[in-house]
Computed example of a mutant assay.
Amino acid sequence: MKIKDLDPQILEKAASMLKAIAHPMRIAILSHLEDGKRLTVTEIHQLLNIEQSTTSHHLGILKDKGVLASQRDGKNTFYFLKHESLRNIIDCVSKCSAS
């Protein structure tokens, strides 16, 4: 399928998701959620050494734009990639920025 064949609403949603991803901290969050990993806010903020409120803010944006999903388990909420194919974007960003 080619981009010109896509519905404008689908393109708008894709652009919105890409805008949400296009932040260094959010890319870092996504890199920790590769390969089906599910992490809590606490785990992510400890991995990235940032404030928990900042972590929650970025997770909220990613979830709102359809990049992440979450599942509550007791007191914890686990975040994960909503679509495993988003790994391709993360891989692309990693490879493209390395050269």
Rank of each mutant, 00 (worst) to 15 (best):
G74W: 08
K2S: 13
L81W: 05
S94W: 14
E43Q: 13
C96M: 15
S99I: 14
C96Y: 15
L48K: 08
K19L: 12
I3S: 07
Q71P: 05
S94L: 14
I21C: 07
H23S: 12
L81T: 02
L62Q: 00
T40K: 05
H57S: 08
I29D: 08
V93P: 00
D35A: 11
I10R: 07
D91N: 15
H45C: 12
D64M: 09
K95P: 03
F80M: 10
I29S: 03
P24R: 12
M17F: 04
C96E: 15
Q52R: 14
L86D: 04
H83S: 09
A14C: 10
S99H: 10
E34Y: 06
L6E: 04
A98Y: 10
A69K: 11
L86E: 02
H83D: 15
D73T: 10
S31Q: 14
T54S: 13
H23M: 07
I90N: 06
G60D: 07
G60E: 04
S56P: 06
A14V: 15
D73G: 01
A22N: 15
A20E: 04
L59H: 05
K65N: 08
I29H: 11
E12Q: 13
D7W: 06
E12P: 04
H57E: 13
L59M: 07
K82H: 03
T77E: 11
R26L: 03
S53Y: 10
H23F: 05
G60R: 01
K19V: 11
S31A: 13
S97A: 11
L18N: 05
K4T: 14
H23K: 10
Q71E: 14
S16A: 12
Q52K: 15
L47G: 02
I21N: 09
T54W: 03
I27R: 05
S53K: 15
S97Y: 09
C92M: 12
H83K: 09
I89A: 05
S94I: 07
A20K: 03
H45N: 12
I90Y: 06
S70V: 01
D7Q: 00
G66K: 00
D5N: 09
I50H: 00
K2G: 12
L47K: 15
L62F: 02
L6R: 07
K2V: 07
T40F: 08
P24S: 09
N49H: 09
L47E: 08
L18R: 02
A15I: 07
K4D: 14
A20Y: 01
D7F: 00
A28R: 11
D73R: 10
S53W: 08
K75W: 13
V41L: 03
Q52A: 11
G66P: 02
L47V: 05
S16Y: 03
K2R: 12
D91R: 13
Q46M: 06
K82D: 04
K82N: 10
G36P: 07
R26M: 03
L6M: 04
L86F: 14
T42I: 08
C92F: 15
P8S: 12
S70Y: 01
Q71S: 14
K75A: 12
L62P: 04
F80E: 02
L86K: 05
K65R: 10
K75G: 14
H58L: 01
I10E: 12
R38W: 01
C96K: 15
Q9I: 14
S85K: 10
L39P: 04
L68Q: 08
K37R: 15
K95Y: 04
G36H: 00
K2D: 11
K63T: 11
S85L: 14
L81I: 03
I90T: 13
E43F: 06
T40N: 09
L30C: 00
E12W: 13
E84Y: 09
